[in-house]
Design a protein around this nucleic acid. Structure first.
Length: 548
RNA sequence: GCGCCUGUAGCUCAGUUGGAUAGAGCAACUGCCUUCUAAGCAGUGGGCCAGGGGUUCGAAUCCCUUCAGGCGCGCCA
């Protein structure tokens, strides 16, 4: 729809001899009185041409060649051009949707360009909690969306398996293990707590028996830490599977970056480029050259690398793999880190417009209306799998995706659980299940709509039918704008609007009527709605239940 | 103190990248099941878009400023 209109306008401008013009925007007006689609093009041109916008609009309209698609073209307000499609035009678009399904719904804006999306990347020191779930939901749907829009997407998880937190995980287990053996071993002050640690300690005992009874931690550290972190990684993968997040393509290990010498190599590279210097016995990266507010240490005076050092290597590694676009999805509490990594990208000569950090705001977890502070160390966190058990994966994802990622979100366990039956996701899924039921009904009555070319869609003339068709036709635009802005949440709002229109239509008009041709046409409209609902839910990573 | 994010209906949030008379869901109230799923539909009420100034044909949206909340500011990870 947008494509057609854009072309028509381009041709009109060409006919007028206007070569330079702002990007042509097509909007769907809020008010029905303003037509089905609208463009502010004339207003944008008025400054360039130094002419009154309404006059320009008139010229553009007069120069439009194929007016047969429209029942009306108005010039309104300060200079909007408002288009109203003919019923025939809408009906034939609906037919095209039915005939070509997916390819009708898609616009190839990716053109095969390679895009890397890194998300979740939680430390492998325990199960995923509710805070990680939002990043998972956003990342998963964004990847689905970009994939559908023609990008070649790789999903990536970065494993922080080299730092002290892994050692601490090992020590926590070791302490519990010693206690299991009846020893009076003091639990580390900033060790990891929680039920899962107890369980893992028992599992460790089952696995190795009393092997390390009299062995100090220093000696068995590597083995226990390795064992523990691999278990945790398995746990995380299970959690992601339970949340129905599509498999990651790549699992990148921080430790391996060190082992392969990539960390030193990356620092050497930056040194050759002149951005590395020594001061106070430490090694620094001159990030202030790229807009950061201070330079950053990469190797401490004790010779240890900082966390930032491996991040430099990791991002260089991403660059070396040759992606057209690189996206990092982070928790918003890491926002102070953004200029640092952007500096790294620029230092390596990467066009920074092709690198994007998407910040996912914190989830304010509430319990009984009170803020609930989570801490993995204190062991009082709400796990992702608990939430999925309580409110369901579809529900949780949808709630996260009805907000733009960069806004704070109150997630009240009680509210979400209590009102789960009234949750928006059910509203949308219900529409889908309802359609299924109708189609099944038609099938039982042997009403066949498989020959879309032969349907008399011109029988779809009432107001609700035409608005529903128009809504279906805007789906492409929603997908495109969601993909361009990396904002999958736009789809959830579209879905709610579409579902509302369908429910409304359903109540006002009986689908399977006496007149067979009318029934078929209406069933076809249901079928088209079903296609779009399923498609959009799929992109969000939400299921489409056949029955409810 | 500095930086980033946020402030829109009682609550939770959208707002098509600067467009037309400000939108939805919950909550509240009123109706609707002998016909395809009532997890539904129809309707009512509810707003100084935090405050102030600016930019222009036009501002919830961009700029400045004040206020309020969140987060971050280590040779931690």
């Amino acid at each position: 729809m947008k494509k057609d209109l854009t072309k028509i306008l381009e041709r009109s401008l060409e006919a007028l001899g206007i070569r330079e013009y702002p990007p042509i925007e097509i909007e769907i007006p809020r008010e029905e009185a303003f037509g089905d689609a609208s463009t502010p093009l004339a207003m944008g041109l008025s400054r360039l041409l130094k002419k009154a916008p309404r006059k320009i609009a008139e010229d553009i309209v007069n120069a439009i060649a194929d007016k047969h698609m429209f029942s009306k073209i108005d010039i309104a307000g300060p200079g909007f051009i408002n288009f109203t499609f003919t019923d025939e035009c809408l009906q034939s678009s609906l037919r095209n949707l039915l005939l070509s399904e997916r390819s009708f719904l898609r616009e190839d804006i990716g053109k095969g360009r390679r895009i890397l999306v890194e998300f979740v990347s939680a430390n492998p020191t325990g199960p995923l909690h509710i805070g990680h779930a939002k990043g998972a939901a956003v990342g998963n749907s964004l990847c689905n969306l970009l994939e559908e829009m023609g990008f070649s997407v790789e999903r990536e998880y970065y494993i922080n398996d080299a730092g002290r937190q892994i050692k601490m995980l090992g020590l926590s287990l070791y302490a519990k293990y010693q206690q299991l053996l009846g020893r009076d071993f003091e639990f580390p002050e900033d060790g990891y707590r929680g039920q899962y640690i107890d369980e893992e300690a028992s599992a460790l005992y089952e696995s190795i028996g009393e092997k390390y009874r009299d062995v100090p931690f220093d000696i068995c550290e590597k083995e226990i830490s390795d064992w523990a972190y691999k278990r945790m990684l398995t746990l995380i993968k299970k959690d992601l599977e339970y949340f129905a997040v599509k498999d990651f393509n790549n699992w990148i290990s921080e430790k391996q970056l060190y082992e392969k010498g990539e960390v030193s190599a990356a620092i050497d590279d930056l040194r050759n480029r002149g951005y590395i210097y020594g001061k106070n016995n430490a090694v620094w990266f001159r990030s202030t050259d790229f807009g950061d507010d201070k330079d950053r240490v990469v190797i401490k005076s004790d010779g240890e690398h900082t966390y930032f050092a491996s991040d430099i290597a990791y991002h260089k590694d991403k660059l070396d793999r040759g992606f057209d676009v690189i996206i990092d999805i982070w928790g918003a509490d890491h926002h102070g880190y953004v200029p640092r990594i952007e500096s790294v990208m620029k230092a390596f000569g990467y066009d920074s417009s092709r690198f994007r950090v998407i910040l996912v705001q914190m989830v304010n977890l509430l319990k009984h209306g009170e803020p609930f502070q989570m801490s993995k160390r204190a062991g009082n966190f709400v796990t992702l799998s608990e939430v999925v058990d309580l409110v369901g994966a579809d529900n949780t994802k949808f709630i996260f995706l009805t907000r733009k990622s960069d806004s704070h979100l109150d997630f009240d366990i009680d509210v979400v659980t209590a009102t789960s039956a009234e949750n928006p996701v059910y509203y949308v899924q219900y529409a889908y299940a309802r359609i299924n039921s109708i189609l099944k009904n038609a099938e039982e009555k042997s009403i066949d709509i498989s020959a879309a070319g032969a349907l008399k869609l011109s029988l779809l003339t009432n107001r609700e039918e035409l608005t529903l068709i128009k809504k279906l036709l805007t789906y492409q635009m929603v997908l495109e704008s969601a993909a361009r802005s990396y904002e999958p949440h736009r789809i959830t709002f579209y879905l709610q609007e579409l579902a509302k229109m369908f429910h409304s239509y359903y109540h006002k008009h009986r689908v399977i009527t006496e007149d067979v041709d009318t029934a078929k046409a209406r069933l076809a409209l249901c079928q088209a709605t079903r296609i779009v609902l399923k498609d959009a839910l799929g992109i969000l990573g939400v299921t489409s239940p056949e029955k409810m």
